[in-house]
Amino acid sequence: MRFKKLILIIAVLTSAPAMIATAQTWVVPDDQKAVCAPIKFTQEMQKQGEQVYMKICQSCHGLPGKDNWMKLTPPPGDLAKDKAQLQTDGELYYRITTGKAPMPEFRNILSDDDRWNVIAFIRTFNPKYVQPDPSAKGSFSGRVVTLALQYSDPMKKVIATATEKLKDGSMSPAAGVEIILYVKRYFGNMQVGDMKTTNAKGEAAFEFPFDLPGNKDGYVDITAKVNDPKNLMKSTPASGSFAIGAPTDKPGLTETRAWWSTRDKTPIWLAITYTGSVLIIWGFIIYIIISILKIRKVAKA
């Protein structure tokens, strides 16, 4: 505990000048300020949000209302205070989503729902808070985009095709849609190449790094997603598995016989030398013990 205090004191002392130097504003775009939660906050959401908060946010922001936030630059602040509570839901949502050092970006860490749940939880500390009516937003007016994915052998490119559902219900190629390509890896999706914008045919062609390891036949799982940080569209991503990665079938790291191998992989020369030496020396020892017993026999005879 004393140790923790010490860190805090040192942190405060050393960060005070830095605080002044880096005091910048963190502006949220107007259209984002207006964003509101898709549904009315429920008790269930607040409970979920509390769990997420305790796991993720509490380490820096402390417990809301307790003013026990971590001394960082800029200060994270207590989220029950006006500084946070006077912001719109959209502002909070934007800040959680995008982050700004030292506040991490939670876009890939927390799902949409979780981010709204946390906001629902934070709002429980503000008795004056009234949630804007989600239904008042009216019907969705943005673009509705569906993606498809294929690999073009002649072009040696991965093609993502965006199709748009128009107001009259007809489908048409969606131009000007920003698309990001991801490859599935063990702990998450990895972006490949830069973001592309679809052309008039609704297509975006991606160079693929063919040296990227795939499975043993070279298959990689690819996903194309619409880049829509401002949540202006409704989009359906597309996924597919293509044999365009580098076939990778590396053996386990314990194949060799080495000093560090388990004993079933003892280096053969060592096993022979060890067993041989032991057998020879103990062979002699056994011979000597038999001889000793013979001394007795010889006397009897």
Partner: peptide, 8 residues
């Protein structure tokens, strides 16, 4: 040491 002994 005798049951699981490693010659390395």
């Amino acid at each position: 040491v005798f049951i699981y002994g490693r010659a390395q």
